[in-house]
Every structure is written in C-alpha cells, then in structure tokens.
Design a binder for these strands. Structure first.
Lengths: 324, 324
DNA sequence: CCCCTCCTTGCACGTTTGTTCACTCGGCTT
DNA sequence: AAGCCGAGTGAACAAACGTGCAAGGAGGGG
C-alpha cells in the first residue's frame, strides 16, 4: 500500500468517524451530513456502512438486567451458565437458524475479546458462519489459536481452517497460530510423538492459558451431521467405535458421552483437540448451538461443564429447558 | 400504576428487546420483524425508537485509538486532558452549537457514570440542554448531587435546577440530592452558619467524595452571558467587583482569574459551589463548552486544572489550540 | 505517453423507515 | 350505564435510505 493510499485510508476513517458522530450522536440526516462533508448523500450512506462494518460504530443491546428473557433465566438457574437466546422464528429452516445465530454471535463477540487475550477457536460449519460476519475490533498483542488439527487423509485442511481463523484474526488484529496437524492421527503413537515436538508444545501451552474458547458442537448421529462427520475425517470403523462407546457429541474433535464422560473413548487418543481438563481451565468458554438436532450433544457438553456462555436459538433453548 | 400496566410494560420491553435484536444484530427489516412479532411495521418502528430512547440499544463510537482527530491529540498534548471534539460546521449559530454539543454529551454520558457512583452536577443553560437529551442507563445505588445553590432574591430557584437534576436522576435511576440554598448568600456569615448545619454538611461530604463532576463554564464578560449573569443572581456592585478582580469565568458559581487563581475574590465567600480544592479531588471532571465566547473562561479553567475531560465544539477547539 | 484497470463518485430508482391521522379499546368518571 | 379520556394501533403518505449503474480519475504497466 502506497503512502498516498495510507493517508487516503485515514482520511476515509476520519470522515467515517465524523459522519458516524453526526448521524448517531447528533441525529442529523445523511443529507445534512453530506452537506457538511461536501460530498453526496450516497457517499455518506456508504461511509456509515463502512463505519458499522469496521466496528467504528458499536451497537450493543443491554437488557435492563431485571428483564433477561424467561428462557435465559431458566437456563441460568438450571445449568448455572449465562445464556444468550437468539430469537429465531419457529418455522425457520436449520440453515436460517444457523446463519442468524452466527450473525448474532459475530456481532457480540467483541465484548468477550480484548487486547492481550488469547482466544482458542475450533472450526466447523458454525465457526465458519460466524467468521464470515465478525465485527472488527482493534486489539493489541492478542492471539487466536486453533484448538484442533484440520487435516484429513485427502488434504492438509489448512485452507478451510485457516480461512476461518484468518477472518477472526483480521477482525481483531490478532496473531493467528495455526495447528498444522490432521484432525485425527492414524495412530496414537504418531500423536504422542508430535506432542513432544517443541512447536506443538508451544501451541499446547498457549491453549492451556487461553482466556476465551469459542466452539460449536459436533453431533455424530444426528440427521444433519457436522462438518467433521461429512468431510471424510472419519471412516466406517471409527463410526462404529463411536457408536459402541455411546458417544453423543464432540467439542473440537474430543468426543464425550451423554453423561459428559470421555474415559475409554478410543478415538480421543488419536484426536487433536484440547482435553476437557484443559478446556475447563479456560475462564470463558463460549458455545454456539443452533438446531434441535444438537440437543443431545448440548446436554452432554453441559454435563461435562464445558460451557460458561451459551448462544442458542430460541426453539432449541425452549427444548432444552422443556425436557426435564 | 396497576398490575396490568406493569406487565404490559414488561411485555413492551421484551418486545423492544427482541425487535432490537432482530434489527441490530440480525439485520432484518422492520417489515420482517413486524411479521415475526405479529404486529404492524409502524409498531416495530415505534418499538425500536423506544428501545433507542430508553437506552436498551446502546450505540457507541470508538476511534481506533490511533486515529483520534488531530485536534483531540493537540489538546491532549498541550493540556494533558482528554478532549472530545464535537464536529459542528463553522457557520452554525451559537444556539445550534450548544444544542449539538449538548446532544453529543447526553449520548456519551452513560460511559462515565455507573452503579454506586456519585455525580455532581452544576446547572445553567448548558446543563439544561444536556439534561433534555440524556440517554437513560439503569444504575443502582447511585447518587446525583447538586453542586451549588440555585436561589436568587426573587425565587428559590428550585424548579429550574431541580428539573435539570431530576432529568439526570430519572435517566440513571439515581437518587437526587438537591442543594436548597441561594446561589449567592447576601452575607458570608449566613453561608458560614448554614455550612455548619448537618443537612448541608451531609451534602458537602458527598461532594467531597463524588466520582464524576459535570459542569459548564460561566463567562461574565462575554457578549453572550451565561444563565447566572442573566438571571438576576448578581447585582451591579457584584459585577464591578468581579471586574476589578479580573475574573474571567466561574465553575458552579466559583469565580477564577485567567491564571486559574481564586484568592481574594470576594464573591466566592458568598457563593455556594465547591471550592476548587474539593473539585480537584474528583477523579473525573467533565467540562462542556460551546462557543468561542467562552474561550477565556476555558483557558482559566484549564490553568486551574479543573478539567479531566473536555467536550467542546470543533471551532472552539481550533481556537483553543491555534492561539499560542 | 497512452492505455488498462480498479476504485470511487453521484445520480436515479426502488426500498425502507418515520410520522400523521383516524380509529379502537380499556379504564375511570359522572 | 353512558360517556369521556388517553394510550396504542395500522393505513397511508412523505421523508430518508441503500444500491446498481455509468462516468470519471488515479496509478501502474506496457
């Protein structure tokens, strides 16, 4: 980028800031702003879009604390976590549902992440959807780390996962640390060997002291399988083994049962995600769920105490509390 | 308010919250929201207005830190305070100017005030303008206290000042503590006597430990005199005395000279505002200035180190840094 | 030096939003 | 019991807004 571009850039930012001020603080119309800024109304409209898209304008919704929705209260009481229920009409399709929850999360994420923090991020269709909408927020000295490997026997998986991570990193101005290993090793021994490599150890150490974790849930046996299950990461035998072990879901390729337990699930010895004892040390663990298909998986994750903040669509939330 | 009204109220708030979510987080159109909420588009428009007006939706503008305006930087460097420059076109009238600065301050004030805080507030045309626009924000156990008396020889001044204070108190859900004394006593002895009353002492103690002070500036000898000077609070002789003492302005009826000094200004023995040594103990001291007429007054207040955060219109800001 | 490309601009149009007005529906009074 | 009052509603209109498009301009490469 040339010097000229740079100063044009900062001009643009300054104009956007001024426009935002005039629009959101002083309630001028875009017309009036256009006049003050000596440009056209359309340009002001675009400036304001830009200001919103780049996080110069930050719009938050704050419940008066005494009025979180009934559902949020119920979930809070029953599971001792903070719930953020996303209103989605009951007749919405699962795709809509995911998209709308993801959009909401993307907008609110900045409230959980700040300078000098480390955020761990999984990958999958939910994370992908979120990543495409994250509202930027400038931070310093913050890190985004990949929670689990993404390669399979066909590709190194780098592009998909790294695109996702990259978008988060870009939005927050954070360093991105990829985890260049397969999602599942073919043999536990290989994993153990790699887990002694210094480059991997460095990453594991960062995981151990991260401030925020962001993840969706996998649900291997629902009709709408998650990315891991559709993408060729697992084979027939693996499925059978998961089924035998009564697995109901996974978080970052670590599988668990309905009661939240993980002991004796063979596949976990080959998976690359952080063990739950590591995850549970993380102060804030944001879980994003949409669609009732993930309900069993969600129940298990709650049992395992993996979640501190749950983002969930309204009807799934209702189902969660309905079914004692 | 009846029980029915109350629940209708909370229904309204819940709807407003949902609408705000759908509009600001999920980018639906009002039409779509109307459909989901089973109401008309107009109602949604009103719901959203309501949500904004009551602070359910909070819109902030955050400079990327590396790009505060040139003016803000200059002021910061030269006076060691935080400046918030409000963009106002140069050809605006002084009334416009005041109104627009006040609106901006009203919108941003919530960022400086929170639960369990004590905020001291002066009164005058600036405060009046701000009070008519404050965006509500619910707080608990917070207090608003009046910085100086408001009576004159004709009225007790309670209604004017208490309307102002009342609006702030209502917006923040804060207790309001009025200061039922005249702006200036006729004799210093009366002031000293009252200053030993327990009710007054209680107020002075609160002033001494307030967290935020909010005030405008008076400028006795400019063409556009402030409320105190127009309202019959002072008499001919007082003016002469101020003039002899080279007074350039006042903060909450405490007068000062261009160099920030107050010693030997007789009127201060009869005024009721907090002494500067008290004010300077307050962690955040927000000063709102609009119009170049107040420039000398502003310079004096800066010399006296009364200000930690300055809100000022663009052209006055420019004049402030231009003139060295 | 010219041309090509990419980015930005303002206009024109269609869409979205704010607001006025007439109306309805409880609650309270006479 | 009738009637009045105020709050809230949707329809209709007017204002404000977003966006596709063609034109213009700056930068880089041939």
């Amino acid at each position: 980028m040339s010097l000229v571009d740079e100063s044009a850039q900062s001009d643009r930012v300054r104009d956007a800031l001024t426009a935002a001020h005039l629009y959101y603080m002083q309630d001028l119309t875009m017309d009036a702003i256009a006049h003050e800024l000596h440009t056209s109304r359309s340009s002001v409209s675009r400036l304001l879009s830009h200001a919103r898209a780049t996080g110069l304008v930050d719009i938050q919704i704050r419940s008066p604390l005494d009025a979180p929705s009934r559902l949020e209260l119920l979930i809070q009481e029953r599971f001792n976590i903070t719930a953020h229920v996303v209103p989605v009409p009951d007749h919405a399709t699962d795709v809509d549902r995911l998209e709308r929850v993801a959009l909401s999360v993307a907008r609110i994420l900045g409230q959980f992440f700040d300078s000098n923090m480390v955020m761990g991020i999984a990958w999958g269709s939910t994370m992908n959807a979120i990543s495409r909408h994250v509202t930027p927020k400038q931070t310093h000295n913050s890190q985004i780390i990949q929670l689990n490997g993404a390669g399979n026997h066909r590709t190194t998986g780098l592009s998909y996962a790294s695109e996702i991570l990259g978008r988060f990193g870009y939005a927050f101005g954070a360093h991105v640390h990829q985890f260049p290993v397969p999602a599942f090793f073919d043999s536990p021994a290989t994993k153990q060997a790699l887990w002694r490599e210094r480059s991997v150890l460095r990453l594991l150490e960062m995981q151990a002291r991260m401030d925020v974790a962001l993840f969706g849930l996998g649900s291997p046996f629902s009709e709408v399988p998650s990315h891991v299950y559709a993408g060729g990461y697992l084979e027939e035998g693996d499925y059978a083994s998961l089924s035998r072990a009564s697995v109901v879901g996974d978080v970052a390729t670590v599988f668990y049962r309905a009661d939240g337990s993980t002991d004796g699930i063979l596949l976990n010895a080959r998976g690359t995600g952080p063990g739950f004892e590591v995850l549970r040390q993380t102060p804030r663990r944001l879980c994003v769920v949409s669609g009732q298909a993930k309900l069993p998986s969600l129940r298990g994750a709650l049992k395992a105490e993996l979640i501190t903040d749950l983002f969930v669509d309204e009807s799934t939330a209702r189902a969660l509390v309905a079914s004692i």
